[in-house]
Design a protein around this nucleic acid. Sequence first.
DNA 1: CTCTAGATCTCGGCC
DNA 2: GGCCGAGGTCTAGAG
Lengths: 221, 221
Amino acid sequence: MARCQVDYAGRLTAHLPMATRVLMLKADGSVLIHADGGSYKPLNWMSPPCNLREGTTDDGDIEWMVSSPKSDDTLRILIFEILHDTSHELGIDPGLQKDGVEKHLQELLAEHPASLAPGLTLVRREFPTAIGPVDLMCRDSRGSSVAVEIKRRGEIDGVEQLTRYLELLNRDPLLHPVSGIFAAQLIKPQARVLAEDRGITCVTVDYDALRGIDDAEHRLF
Amino acid sequence: MARCQVDYAGRLTAHLPMATRVLMLKADGSVLIHADGGSYKPLNWMSPPCNLREGTTDDGDIEWMVSSPKSDDTLRILIFEILHDTSHELGIDPGLQKDGVEKHLQELLAEHPASLAPGLTLVRREFPTAIGPVDLMCRDSRGSSVAVEIKRRGEIDGVEQLTRYLELLNRDPLLHPVSGIFAAQLIKPQARVLAEDRGITCVTVDYDALRGIDDAEHRLF
DNA sequence: CTCTAGATCTCGGCC
DNA sequence: GGCCGAGGTCTAGAG
């Protein structure tokens, strides 16, 4: 905890006027400067790897020069008053265990393709193309190929992504014609307009309902 | 500083096994859980606004329940041992003063459009369209319209963005034909290929040189 | 290593 | 308030 002033120079230049803040130095050399509010993003910071040099200004204040050895980013911290100072060894953290995001949605839809369109069947998940994998490759009731792009939130870039896949897939005479389905828990209006203008079908997915169906089916066995 | 274990449930579920970490509680109620490494992103957190309730487990350990009043996110922190505990009022921070990013690049190019192509002149910055503003609308030496998209780093999504603008602008008989220039300090190879495949001209911009020209011109007055 | 796409993104601007 | 674009994005995963 210190009254400090900070100047950053790198991809941009930024300045923090003098105020009381939290300075956190991590074991890997990284530095975080936090205010008493806002979200988790620090006011300013320096990512590892970086080096910290401590010096003194002509006025007798503490000066920290933090610099990155690979980029030319620098952070200069002037410390006018130390209100609190403590140091602890934490060791290596076992890390965060995550569960259930877009991947789970893809798994559920892969098991229940017909929930996207009647008669739809799965060909394969993560169907490979030269520009990246298509989330689901399916066939409709008439045997035509259908590429499915799945998002938690459907926005314009997702439509662009599916459009690129469709353009590429439709060059393959063995697959042509390939149609597209854009599936998401929520589809933004602009994304829907763009998708439908390009002949892509939009489907909003009810995650909880789908999970319910899935659980019910598994209970049958 | 505490030995703790954390469970988050909300947009996803996540778990942090017991380990020693930094717990930061901010004045606005937000909570950050940091390890002794990684970058500025906490292992887990709760964004403001949120409420913290302190309780005790059957084993006598401290339990913090942090919940959001608007979403249904919850964070449960079990504290097994407190290694250090300190509290300070920091007050409101004057905040970060930023300078010089994409906006500055746009200003410089608006003042020196001919650096993008010989004879190019500015019509207007932030030229409005139904799907968003075009960074620079210009005219070439023959009087044809030229839409310019400016990025610090030129990647595929920037090319897609310009492509959408061009498609829309070219529907306007008063503007047609509109050509495109994709300007960036650095253009990724894949973005360049895509742009050139679509007839979009790529220009890499030397920010420092441009600033030098600009400074020199201002010194003349 | 690069490139791609997601993120409990965060943050700011504009409407 | 929402939507949209940018970020010193960061981060994980695939090729």
